[in-house]
Lab assay of single mutants.
Amino acid sequence: VTVDIKGMEYHFDNPEEAKKFAERMAKELGGELKVENGTLKVE
């Protein structure tokens, strides 16, 4: 699973970990979490 945090890509084997990480980063950065082509994106 790929997580894109404002252009920086992180790769996770575990989808649950990827989702938790993306949600935490969205909250910390005040960004919006989206799913695009199987990639979790925070913008």
Rank of each mutant, 00 (worst) to 15 (best):
A18I: 00
N37R: 05
L33I: 14
R24I: 08
V35P: 04
A26T: 06
H11Y: 14
V35Q: 09
V42R: 02
A26K: 04
L29T: 07
A18S: 01
M25I: 08
N37I: 05
G30S: 08
F12N: 00
N14V: 04
D13K: 10
L40Y: 13
I5E: 01
E32Y: 15
K19Y: 15
L40I: 14
D4R: 15
A22N: 01
V3N: 01
L33F: 08
V35I: 13
I5V: 11
E9F: 14
F12W: 01
K41D: 04
I5P: 00
M25H: 03
L40N: 04
L40P: 03
A22E: 02
G31Y: 12
L33Q: 04
L29V: 05
A22D: 00
L29M: 09
A18G: 07
A22W: 08
A18L: 02
V3D: 01
K27R: 12
K41S: 07
K20Q: 12
H11K: 10
E43F: 15
K41T: 10
K19N: 07
A26G: 03
K6F: 15
N37Q: 07
N37F: 07
E28A: 10
K19L: 14
A26M: 08
K27N: 10
K34F: 11
E23Q: 09
V1Q: 06
M25S: 03
E32I: 15
K41A: 05
E32C: 14
L33C: 13
V1P: 02
G38W: 02
V35D: 08
D4L: 15
E16P: 01
D13Y: 06
V35W: 15
A26L: 09
K27D: 08
T2D: 03
Y10H: 04
K19V: 11
G38P: 03
E23C: 13
G7S: 02
F21Q: 00
T2L: 10
K20F: 09
K41M: 09
H11P: 01
E28F: 11
F21N: 00
F21G: 00
K19W: 15
E43K: 11
V1W: 15
R24D: 09
E16F: 10
V35Y: 14
L33G: 03
E9A: 12
E9Y: 14
E17K: 05
G31Q: 06
E16D: 12
E23M: 11
E43P: 05
K34I: 13
V42Q: 03
R24A: 12
I5S: 01
L29N: 05
K27Y: 13
K20I: 12
H11C: 13
K20H: 08
T2Y: 08
E23Y: 08
G7F: 03
E28L: 13
L40S: 03
T39G: 07
G30N: 11
F21Y: 05
E36D: 10
G30E: 07
A18T: 00
V35H: 08
M8F: 12
E28M: 12
L40Q: 04
Y10F: 11
G30P: 03
K6D: 15
E17L: 06
E17F: 04
E32T: 15
E36Q: 11
E16L: 09
V42Y: 03
D4P: 02
E43G: 11
E17A: 09
T39W: 09
A22F: 06
V1E: 02
T2S: 06
N37L: 08
E23P: 00
E32F: 15
M25D: 01
M25W: 12
D4W: 15
E43Q: 12
A26S: 06
T39N: 10
K27M: 13
H11D: 02
V35R: 06
I5M: 03
G38K: 02
M8G: 02
E16I: 09
E17G: 02
G7D: 02
E17W: 03
K20D: 09
T39H: 11
G30D: 08
R24K: 12
V35A: 08
A18C: 05
Y10M: 03
F12V: 00
D4C: 15
E43S: 12
E32V: 15
K19F: 14
E43R: 12
G31C: 13
K34W: 10
G31P: 03
D4S: 15
T39D: 05
F21R: 00
G31L: 14
G7P: 02
K6T: 08
A26Q: 06
V3Y: 02
E9M: 15
A18N: 00
G38F: 02
E9T: 14
D13R: 10
P15L: 14
E32R: 13
K20P: 00
K6W: 14
A22P: 00
L29R: 02
K19Q: 13
K34G: 05
E36V: 14
A18P: 00
E36L: 12
G38L: 05
P15I: 14
E9L: 15
V3C: 07
V35G: 06
L29W: 06
T39E: 06
V42W: 05
K6C: 15
V42L: 10
M8E: 09
E28V: 11
A22K: 03
E32L: 13
G30H: 10
G7K: 01
E23V: 08
K6M: 15
N37C: 12
N37G: 11
L40D: 03
F12Y: 02
E16S: 08
V1H: 09
E32H: 14
K20S: 11
F12S: 00
G30F: 07
K19I: 14
R24E: 11
K20A: 14
E36H: 10
K41P: 03
G7M: 02
G30M: 08
E43D: 11
V3S: 01
N14K: 05
A26I: 09
K20Y: 08
L29I: 08
Y10E: 00
A18Y: 03
R24T: 10
E23F: 06
N14E: 05
F12D: 00
K34Y: 11
F12G: 00
E16G: 06
L33M: 09
T39Q: 11
N14I: 04
K20C: 13
M8R: 14
K19H: 11
L40A: 04
R24H: 11
V1D: 02
T39P: 04
E17N: 05
E16W: 11
G7L: 01
I5L: 06
P15H: 12
K27G: 07
K19E: 06
V1L: 12
H11F: 12
G38E: 05
L33E: 03
T39S: 09
K34H: 10
G30V: 05
E36S: 10
E16R: 06
G38N: 09
V3I: 05
G30K: 09
L40F: 11
F12R: 00
K41H: 09
D4A: 14
E43V: 15
M8W: 10
E23G: 01
V35F: 14
V35L: 11
G31T: 07
E32Q: 14
R24Q: 12
Y10I: 05
G7W: 03
P15Q: 10
G31R: 04
G38A: 05
D4G: 07
E16Y: 10
K34L: 10
P15N: 07
K6Y: 15
Y10P: 01
E36A: 10
G31H: 06
N14D: 13
E36K: 07
K27T: 09
H11V: 10
D4I: 15
F12I: 01
V1K: 06
E43L: 14
D13V: 09
G38S: 06
N37Y: 05
G31N: 04
E32K: 14
H11S: 06
M25G: 01
K41Y: 11
K34M: 09
R24M: 12
L29E: 03
E43A: 11
F12T: 00
T2F: 09
F12Q: 00
A22R: 05
D4E: 14
F21E: 00
L33R: 02
K34P: 03
H11M: 08
M8C: 13
F21W: 09
E43N: 11
G30T: 04
L33H: 04
K19S: 07
R24P: 00
P15V: 13
L29G: 04
A26E: 04
E43Y: 15
E17R: 04
K6G: 14
L29A: 04
N14M: 03
L40V: 07
E17H: 06
D13I: 09
E32W: 15
V42G: 03
Y10G: 00
E9Q: 14
M8K: 14
G38M: 05
T2N: 05
E32N: 13
M8H: 12
E9D: 04
K6V: 10
K34V: 13
K20T: 09
V42C: 07
H11I: 10
F21P: 00
V42I: 12
R24S: 10
G30Y: 06
G30Q: 08
E16C: 13
E17I: 05
L33S: 03
I5Q: 01
E32P: 04
L40C: 08
E23H: 05
T39R: 13
E16K: 06
P15C: 13
R24V: 07
M8N: 08
F12P: 00
G7R: 01
V42E: 03
M8P: 00
T2H: 06
I5N: 01
V1F: 14
L33P: 03
M8T: 13
G7A: 01
F12K: 00
Y10C: 10
G7Q: 02
K41I: 12
A22Y: 05
D13T: 11
Y10D: 00
K41R: 13
